[in-house]
């Protein structure tokens, strides 16, 4: 950063000491950003750059990369086989997100409307608590609960509801269950933050002006919590879409999702360029989602201002 770009106070004639301190402060500010920036470059920009480059090269039988640029991987990725896996993943992630929204909204609303701050803190703690245990371990716990000889089947059999154990595991429903379980807190937290910020007086005013509860929800609450909803949707959809362990463990590897497919390109098929292309496509989808998110937010803000 050059001195000319340093913001100056006053009308173009800063006192020398002031300019100096500001420059020093700016430099100090830059210095504090350096660790983050370094981290960002090494662990985000560089790997994604590598993926971007690798995606347009060719893989060889022994995992080598042939440095001949081309679009072969892109063409291959549009094969119905791979698009099918991608579509399946989108469907699973969408269902997961919808269920999280339906379950998460009442929960967030309930927590946010507790009158006592301590109650709210305790309830929020309970939402976050599962994160203290490794996700993989919690996923294995579902296997213990749901397998044919597991806890749930055991109880159902004991109380005489079933004779033969139910097949609760190793299907798409189990995958959705695992994802909802894992990512529900990521929906509740932003929703909570949005709902909690609503001034109760606004709701009272709406009621005083004759709005029925449903109308209050639709015209007052909903627009105010849209940012929270959108954030929650993105937080849940993104990790669900690329999830690897849940389809493997709870889905029994029977219906692959895009994360598993990518994982296999790198770890067993040893075709890094094709794996990179799939990563690239996934990133594009996710970036599209973020663009969509900001569009929704901008529109929402505009609507509110217009109102």
């Amino acid at each position: 950063m050059t001195a000319s770009k340093t913001p100056t106070s006053g009308a173009g004639q800063p006192a020398p000491e002031v300019g100096f301190t500001q420059r020093a402060r700016a430099r100090l500010g830059l210095l504090t950003v350096v660790p983050t920036l370094t981290w960002w470059v090494i662990f985000l920009v560089l790997p994604i750059g590598l993926v971007l480059v690798t995606a347009f090269f060719k893989g060889a039988p022994y995992g080598e990369i042939i440095y001949e640029p081309g679009f072969g991987n892109l063409v291959r990725a549009t094969d119905p086989l791979y698009l099918g896996v991608l579509w399946h993943s989108v469907v699973i992630a969408t269902i997961t997100t919808a269920i999280c929204l339906v379950l998460g909204y009442p929960a967030a609303y309930f927590i946010a409307t507790r009158p006592q701050a301590r109650t709210r803190t305790v309830l929020l703690m309970l939402v976050i608590l599962p994160f203290w245990t490794n996700f993989l371990i919690r996923t294995y716990a579902w296997i213990i609960l749901l397998n044919r000889e597991g806890v749930v089947n055991g109880i159902l059999k004991r109380i005489g509801l079933i004779d033969e154990p139910l097949s609760l595991l190793y299907n798409d429903a189990a995958v959705v269950l695992g994802l909802v379980y894992g990512y529900l807190p990521l929906m509740i937290l932003p929703l909570y933050a949005a709902i909690e910020r609503i001034n109760p007086q606004v709701l009272e005013a709406a009621a005083d002006l004759g709005a029925r509860p449903l109308r209050v929800l639709r015209t007052v609450v909903l627009p105010l919590i849209i940012p929270g909803v959108v954030a929650g949707v993105v937080f849940v959809f993104v990790p669900s879409l690329g999830n690897i362990p849940v389809p493997e463990l709870l889905g029994g590897g029977r219906s692959e999702m895009i994360g598993n497919l990518i994982n296999r390109q790198f770890l067993t098929t040893r075709d890094w360029p094709f794996g990179s292309m799939l990563v690239l496509l996934l990133l594009l989808i996710l970036m599209g989602l973020l663009v969509l998110q900001s569009l929704v937010l901008r529109r929402n803000r505009k609507v509110r201002i217009d109102d």
């Binding site: 086989l81 896996v85 692959e256 598993n260 497919l261 296999r264 067993t268």
Partner: peptide
């Protein structure tokens, strides 16, 4: 490998 992918998908 592609054949295996078909089975998994």
């Amino acid at each position: 490998a592609e054949a295996a992918s078909k089975v998994k998908a």
